[in-house]
Design a protein around this nucleic acid. Structure first.
Length: 290
DNA sequence: TCCCAGGACTACT
DNA sequence: AGTAGTCCTGGG
């Protein structure tokens, strides 16, 4: 039996052991999504999808099935990845907990802007700013599913003033956004085309942009450029390393932690990091509630 | 009130 | 090369 199939306007997923929309969207890799009454809604690259979960299948009603087949990376077999990752007790727990998680293949510009805004920020506020950009500066799209606003393209972004970014809650990141958007737009940078570059070159380019440090660069590499061996080290991954993997090791800074994870999980480091991140953060939420 | 919430930049040593 | 101080802002 097939894991999933595409029809005209929807994708039907049968193998729920490697697709859980809550795990996918709530694991911290994406901002343009909303939890509705009985479905999740996702915006990406001018397209829109609504994901309905049922006991034995998931239906994705969307504006473009091919786009979302790629977005959700449906051709990749996660059962294989999960098997290979369960090399210690912590990973077994993390994978078991977030069994339906997948690393998305997101729109490059949206991801870049989103993670610049994410610096020292929380998800709720990042989403407020991102959706505000859509509503106020994006193209209105009338589709028979519904009407919605796409995330603004580079040209639309380049017309936004500092005051407007501030009004949307970007705070001190408004200057980062202005400078980086100005650079990309004036130099006609096509972020999609940069996919051909190798990790090192792409990393150097991203770090050269204002408002992008190593952690944000890693997020863009992993979530938009599908460089799945990359490990973004934020405060959570820092904690995770020291809690589960750092015993008797004299590793303190994040660059070293990044290398330690890469040495340990090899090509699957990015996936490992995401299962661990999601697991630890959700455990922490549970603890806080008690 | 203080201090964080999924960091980056600048200005130092 | 490595590290402290500063940067919006809403919520506990």
């Amino acid at each position: 039996m097939k894991n999933y199939e595409l029809t005209n306007n929807k994708i039907i997923i049968y193998d729920l052991s490697q697709f859980n929309i809550e795990h996918i969207l709530e694991c911290g890799q994406v901002f343009l999504y909303e939890k509705k009454e009985n479905y999740y809604e996702v915006l990406s690259g001018g397209e829109m999808a609504r994901i309905f979960s049922y006991p034995n299948k998931v239906e994705i009603i969307c504006t473009n099935t091919k786009y979302f087949e790629n977005y959700f990376d449906l051709k990749t077999d996660y059962n294989e990845i999960k098997r290979a990752l369960q090399i210690d007790e912590t990973m077994r727990k993390a994978v078991s907990y977030g069994y339906g998680m997948r690393i998305l293949r997101q729109h490059k510009l949206e991801t870049l802007i989103g993670f610049i805004i994410s610096a020292n920020n929380n998800i709720k506020r990042i989403q407020k700013t991102m959706y505000g950009l859509c509503k106020e500066f994006g193209t209105k799209i009338n589709h028979n599913i519904d009407t919605y606003y796409a995330f603004p393209n580079l040209q639309q972004l380049s017309k936004i003033s500092k005051e407007e970014f501030l009004k949307l809650g970007a705070g001190y990141r408004a200057d980062y956004l202005l400078k980086t958007i100005k650079y990309l737009s004036e130099n006609n940078v096509d972020l999609e085309k940069l996919e051909e570059l190798d990790i090192e070159k792409l990393n150097i380019f991203l770090l050269s942009l204002y408002g992008i440090g190593q952690k944000v660069a890693d997020c863009i590499l992993l979530f938009a450029y599908s460089k799945t061996e990359v490990v973004p080290v934020d405060t959570w991954v820092d904690k995770i390393y020291n809690k589960y993997y750092g015993a008797n090791k004299n590793v303190k800074n994040r660059k070293q932690i990044r290398e330690e994870f890469l040495n340990y999980f090899k090509k699957l480091s990015g996936y490992a990091q995401q299962y661990l991140f999601y697991y630890e953060r959700e455990q922490n939420k549970v603890i806080k509630k008690l």
